[in-house]
Design a protein around this nucleic acid. Structure first.
Lengths: 346, 346
DNA sequence: CTGAAAGCGCTTACAG
DNA sequence: CTGAAAGCGCTTACAG
């Protein structure tokens, strides 16, 4: 039912090839033809069918950005900045938002066939998905905010924050404030990992243990940590669990800010004040952390640099450069949710 | 570079037509052919090119859902429920996430050409975009969470909350608690609209005025309201402005929960306690409202019903039904952010 | 049940 | 500068 390039050819009196050429800004077209055809296009409101275009084209000049988790505020920030940088470089970008649980590599494979982009920028990603099928995506790619060095794909770079060190400093600041009973809430494998691997949660757990070890403070993951889904509700529930299984806690490290927000609410609902009774530290540095009451202490990932290095590394790889794995610095923000522990009441 | 159906044909020894048929679950294929072809598909990891498929197909059986604002938490909820309902009805759905400022109708036009869906579910939308180009989308459509009755398109239904009444009750609950100096923060046209039209912000402003009029309380939009972008930061800044231009205020109605969260933080930063010194009411009922400290009083939009009626109305329209415009009830949640005004200090 | 062929809307050498 | 033609990866009548 919609117009096609054929209709435009007919109405303008030119051949479809010529119409295609003016639509694509090809130079070898007479002004007369260009004018006439553009006029017809304007008056009919014709829009070319992009998918047909891509079907024929050898490959596009676009960078594909795949965002894992449409509601992830950290990724939203990184995305915005990456788009700005690409635009400034006159690089078109195509953004694909995925749900938390969608398979980003499957999506990349689809985009490979259909858009044939220059390369991929993955904002977040699941190791299992990459292991399972990334070998089939042969285009230059960069995984942002998650480590990919141990994956070992020759066309996959990564730029991320040092999760071990970030978590270590987060917990460290609690210990240094005098806390000895620190509870942890975090992702699936933060408690008893079958293999101590390199999932983000596992790395952050290692950071916790490192901070404790360095200061000679004992830490028992089984007792002192609880699993939370990546949501406020998840943080709330995990905190309730944690309070039961580890009642002496005076501080909580949440592996993401959204979980931390749920944790604060759970504490508040039990009459436990933050930070007077229990301190809380989050992770990510999303905008919302700065609007909480109390303002959330958190490990701020440097979204600006994650975006910039992600784009730079990708473009270098497109020019033939090899994959690299970069770590960008983070910043610990103390906020208002950390205090000293109350006098020991034992 | 990726495999095509032709490669599969070659390797399996069958013609492309037969391959296509087994890929699409067509019944008229021998078991032998099906088995052999599926085996080749499995071992090669072949995936058909969806866009080529759609190019040829007459039209798909999918419902297209266009989400305006990838980070909008209310829409995220509605989306989840709509997907669940469609799945239960064995209706495939294709979701398109857009940025806040992208043109959702342009996107629908693109999808019209490329996917040829059964119909559209718009989660949020801008009146101007619809006015400009919706006439070209001739497929059954439902606009969810925004009114479309005054737009007058014969194929565009809507299901939304009564914005006038919602805002009226929000402000009403402040007035009934004894507040007389109520400030408003909200969208672009919430202050001095050139034409008092039917933008969401304008409708909510009308609700405020109605609540005041009913109770004989004077209300001066020029002085008592400030414009805010749809974000926490926007709410924060508008609150700062409002405090200067209307220093006597004892309560604030924010036209969205995210703005309200920014408002609470702005108040807190000035040593103004919520709700002891100033009360705050939001709008939307996003999950986050229930995790704030204090829990946010807000107008809860019924996402479950918005989703359900949206889907039902769309499917009815696909069967040939006429467009309808429905209002679903909301619920005022008092939270913890509303109190009585302090004794008058004048 | 299967193959050969036309065609979806576009682009792009190839002639002229 | 422009047209006619081939072809991108798939589907679908049409024969057999």
């Amino acid at each position: 039912m919609p117009m096609t390039i054929k209709d435009i050819a007919q109405r303008s009196g030119y051949a479809v090839g010529t119409v295609s050429r003016v639509l694509n800004g090809h130079p070898d077209v007479s002004d007369a033809a260009r004018e006439r055809i553009l006029a017809v296009v304007a008056e009919t409101g014709f829009r070319p069918n992009d998918t047909a275009r891509h079907l024929k084209q050898r490959g596009s000049r676009e960078v594909a950005i795949i965002v894992k988790g449409a509601g992830n505020l950290l990724f939203a920030r990184i995305l915005e900045e990456a788009q700005r940088l690409l635009k400034a470089d006159h690089r078109p970008a195509a953004v694909y938002y995925l749900d938390e649980n969608d398979d980003e590599v499957e999506q990349a494979l689809r985009v490979c066939r259909e858009l044939k982009p220059l390369g991929f920028l993955f904002l977040g990603g699941n190791r299992d998905n990459f292991k399972r099928s990334f070998e089939h995506v042969t285009l230059p790619s960069v995984l942002v905010a998650t480590r990919a060095d141990t994956l070992g794909f020759p066309n996959l770079s990564s730029v991320s924050t040092d999760d071990v060190e970030g978590a270590s400093q987060a917990v460290g600041c609690l210990l240094d404030a005098g806390h000895r009973q620190v509870g942890i809430i975090g992702g699936e494998s933060c408690v008893a990992a079958p293999v101590m691997g390199c999932n983000t949660s596992q790395l952050r757990l290692m950071g916790c243990q490192q901070a404790c070890t360095q200061r000679g403070v004992p830490f028992d993951p089984q007792r002192q940590s609880a699993i939370a889904r990546y949501s406020m509700e998840g943080g709330y529930e995990a905190t309730v669990t944690l309070l039961e299984q580890f009642p002496g806690l005076t501080a909580i490290f949440a592996m993401s800010d959204v979980m931390a927000i749920g944790a604060i609410r759970a504490l508040h609902d039990r009459g436990i004040r933050v930070p007077q009774d229990v301190s809380v530290v989050g992770y990510d540095g999303i905008e919302q952390a700065g609007y909480c009451v109390p303002r959330l202490a958190t490990v701020c990932q440097d979204w600006e640099q994650l975006a910039r290095r992600g784009v730079e590394i990708l473009l270098r790889q497109v020019e033939g450069g090899a994959a690299v794995h970069e770590i960008v610095p983070f910043r610990l923000s103390l906020g208002e949710s950390v205090g000293r522990p109350k006098e020991n009441t034992h």
